[in-house]
Design a protein around this nucleic acid. Sequence first.
DNA 1: TAGCTGTACTCAAGGAATTGAGTAGTCATG
DNA 2: CATGACTACTCAATTCCTTGAGTACAGCTA
Lengths: 202, 202
Amino acid sequence: MALRHAVLAALLDGEFSGYQLTKIFDVGVSDFWYATPQQLYAELAKMETDGLLTGRRVVQRGRPDKRVFTVTGAGLAELAAFAAAPAKPLLIRDDLIVKVHACDLLAPGPLIAQLQERAAEAAAKLELFGKMLLRLRGELEEEEFLRRGERVGPYLTCLGGLRLERQMHEWCLQTARTLSERAVRDGTAQDESAQQEKGALS
Amino acid sequence: MALRHAVLAALLDGEFSGYQLTKIFDVGVSDFWYATPQQLYAELAKMETDGLLTGRRVVQRGRPDKRVFTVTGAGLAELAAFAAAPAKPLLIRDDLIVKVHACDLLAPGPLIAQLQERAAEAAAKLELFGKMLLRLRGELEEEEFLRRGERVGPYLTCLGGLRLERQMHEWCLQTARTLSERAVRDGTAQDESAQQEKGALS
DNA sequence: TAGCTGTACTCAAGGAATTGAGTAGTCATG
DNA sequence: CATGACTACTCAATTCCTTGAGTACAGCTA
């Protein structure tokens, strides 16, 4: 029941269509919520029948029509109620960390590759967030904007995303380096008992 | 289908009962997976019938019996297959960040309180992770342990959790400070139009 | 000795999320 | 002029996850 609040929050920044929202959510762009397109379309429909949103058909040329949504008064009230209620704990689920946790019994190759891939993704997001921050604060300096800007919410969450991606990037690279060095050590070891075990699982 | 892999990874560190695993997962202790007790018990039962785990009844005195689980060969194979497959993207869902994203239209009081609460939780975890790291590496220095330790997986994920909680802690406090300062400014402003709007939603 | 906390689970219902397939038109590329 | 990529969605099945309630015993406290 909390995807709807994320949608409401996202729609505070303007009218968006379901498709545009998928672009925001599928990558988890702002690093604050993740959702698939199907989920979004379903939720948008439900939210409209619940009166939290109103849809508006926009005719386009050269591409299909789209329906953009706006938050209603009831939607704002829902958001306010949500904000006043105690927050659920942070939910994290990450395959990659599970793999690292088990790394001592796994083949190091694929894991290192995946860590480097994740690091690259994090770097890409880092850049993206940097640009978003610039765009959001316009010509003001950060401090000035945070003091006097009239819409700082997205900026603050973006700062959070930036921090997260930075630490993710560093952790992935450091972990990959550690595992690489250990793999070399194992590979050049005289007795092969350690690799035998790993070989059985790779 | 990935909770089972998290369970397998957790059981590499020893035999645990369902109840013990809930203690590991409910808080999301290692910051790598979150699951409720019911989910765990159900999954453990399924994993046992699938042959990934074997349960063993342990009689205790002064407290109820428990069943502890061990990973089987098939379980290790499952884990290896999982590790070789591409990882799903990091999944984050956080109420608090959604609220911050919408903060410009919300009453600042409850939000600031929640940010401080989260900061306190992060600080508590930080301390916990610090102790876990000490325990895991024993009398060795970190570098030495990462080079030569025989079980570094949990240590590496713990390092990740530590980083995450540190950044969460800082972000929450900084964001709370920013919002507090803005609230004071709004509160002491001559014209009250800004608060009027917020008042309507608080 | 009543009440509370902690260990160690079980069951059921309902909502949320994932997976997979499918539609339909536009635009650029080779 | 066919192929693939992009916009913009929809539908259905299944699986996963959450919510809420309940059982049972042991130890401690007032």
